[in-house]
Nucleic acid binder design. Structure first.
Length: 429
RNA sequence: GGAGAGGUGGCCGAGCGGUUGAAGGCGCCUGACUCGAAAUCAGGUUUACCGGCAACGGUAACGUGGGUUCGAAUCCCACCCUCUCCGCCA
């Protein structure tokens, strides 16, 4: 959520910056609402001051036992008091409207974000490693997985419908190994504290990080009670400190969490229908940082490097794209995508998205900090990134480490997590 | 699911219609005392918004939302949450 004060006093600037995202917004109604609200607040405050003073007198009369005096003023006060009600009602409805409008406005892109309309316009800022060379035509991960007898889409469809999968045997084990591996690196080498949060959250929580109210159709939810299945651990983990004032000395706070993620993928019909790339349920290790506002840019770089480190240790070639204004998510001020090379698809695919949200989420979720105990509370900056999407990492290993005979090499860094296993082989027969 | 208790400031805990933003205690900050510290004493210690350069003044907030009233932390209604006991259960 943007700051009303900032928006209303910098209308043109905000409109211009939002336009870079392709969002053409007329913020004039917002300004009018804010103005009306200010007038109402002042008027109500003045009335209240008068009422309060009168009531203090009434208190004295009551104490003195002056029944007649009390009666005499009661009628008069009833009128003054009653007159305030319509103004308060109007104020309440204006504030509700203001809030509603603000919740639908996306974040302002950071000045360093390149202009562009779609993912085709994202500049590549760096690459790591090289594409592996094959002396055969590399297969897709679903071909490899099914040949290994360890990836089953038909039975997944039987029990849950489209966009689900069942891993078994060595691939189920590989998935679990990846989760452990990632969490170990982030906690041991990158200084994150591991968190195991709820996977079902309230509407308020989903609003705090920006998934709601605008993107309700993307989420799965339960009925009675209404709870949302988290689309990413970002949601519960960022909301951990909602409505809190943190001690400045505690920043930056770095948390990592493994969770399943649930997405309806509404609007992506026909996209990535085969394989593990786009599922209703997938697993992810997430990185979340709460940082000092003046440090969020460098913190963003750091976070991105933490995600990249996983790919490096697995020996997977990837590149980093700076998302252009037209490709960024609703709440983000700046985003880097890590794109891993998938030989089976002959393409780079997003495996991590690392974003700096500035104070957009912290304003919604009211997450603040105090530099020193004497300072005024300020909004923290929040950041998060996948570190990494587990399913897609498994895909990357299958496709990059495949051999002509259908077996798959296990990257050395992962072998300790696989009980020393160095290769997954096609079962005989 | 059944029965009960309760939600007040950073924490504990009073208040149960009238200068109560809220006693008291703890914690924390500042000052005095001290070589220093402890102890002791004095003062201070919520957040948001409005006005003001500031000092400061004003308004709101005692789980949330309504209601009663001239006036509500205190009364009424609904909802949410927490705790205890019973049942069930990974």
């Amino acid at each position: 959520m943007l700051d009303v004060k900032y928006v209303t006093s910098n209308l043109e600037e905000v409109e211009r910056k939002l336009k870079r995202r392709g969002a053409t917004l007329d913020l004039e109604p917002l300004r009018a609402l804010a103005e009306r609200r200010a007038a109402l607040v002042t008027a109500i405050q003045e009335k209240r001051t008068a009422i309060n003073a009168a009531n203090a007198d009434m208190g004295k009369l009551a104490k003195a036992g002056d029944k007649a005096g009390l009666e005499a003023r009661r009628a008069e006060l009833r009128e003054i008091s009653g007159a305030i009600k319509p103004a308060e009602d109007e104020l309440a409805s204006i504030e509700a409207e203001l809030e509603k409008q603000l919740l639908f406005i996306p974040n302002i892109p950071d000045d360093s974000v390149p202009d562009g309309a779609s993912s085709d316009d994202n500049p590549i800022v760096r690459t790591w490693g090289e594409k592996p060379v094959f002396d055969f035509t590399p297969k897709s991960h679903w071909e490899i997985g099914e040949a290994l007898g360890a990836m089953d889409f038909d039975r997944a469809a039987k029990i849950s419908g489209a966009r689900f999968s069942v891993l078994s045997g060595p691939l189920a084990r590989l998935e679990r190994a990846l989760i452990d591996f990632m969490l170990d690196i982030h906690t041991r080498d990158h200084g994150y504290t591991e968190v195991s949060p709820p996977y079902l959250v309230t509407r308020e929580t989903m609003t705090g990080t920006g998934q709601l109210p605008k993107f309700e159709e993307d989420a799965f939810k339960t009925v009675n009670p209404e709870l949302f299945l988290i689309p990413t651990a970002e949601v519960p983990v960022t909301n951990l400190y909602r409505d809190e004032i943190l001690e400045g000395a505690r920043l930056p706070i770095a948390l990592t969490a493994y969770t399943p993620c649930f997405r309806s993928e509404a609007g992506s019909y026909g996209k990535d229908t085969r394989g593990l790339i786009r599922q209703h349920q997938f697993h992810k290790v997430e990185l979340v940082r709460f940082v000092h506002p003046e440090q969020s840019a460098e913190e963003h770089e750091k976070l991105t490097s933490h995600a990249g480190e996983i790919l490096k240790r697995l020996g997977l070639h990837y590149r980093v794209a700076a998302l252009c204004t037209g490709d960024m998510g609703f709440a983000s001020a700046k985003t880097y995508d890590l794109e891993v090379w998938l030989p089976g698809q002959n393409a780079y695919r997003e495996i991590s998205s690392c974003s700096n949200f500035g104070d957009f989420q912290s304003r919604r979720a009211n997450i603040r900090f105090r530099e020193t105990p004497k300072d005024k509370p300020r909004l923290v900056h929040t950041l998060n990134g996948s570190g990494l999407a587990v399913g897609r990492t498994l895909v990357a290993i299958l496709e990059n480490c495949q051999e002509a005979d259908g077996s798959v090499r296990i990257p050395g860094a992962l072998q300790p997590y696989m009980n020393g296993l160095s290769r997954i082989t096609v079962p005989a027969g």
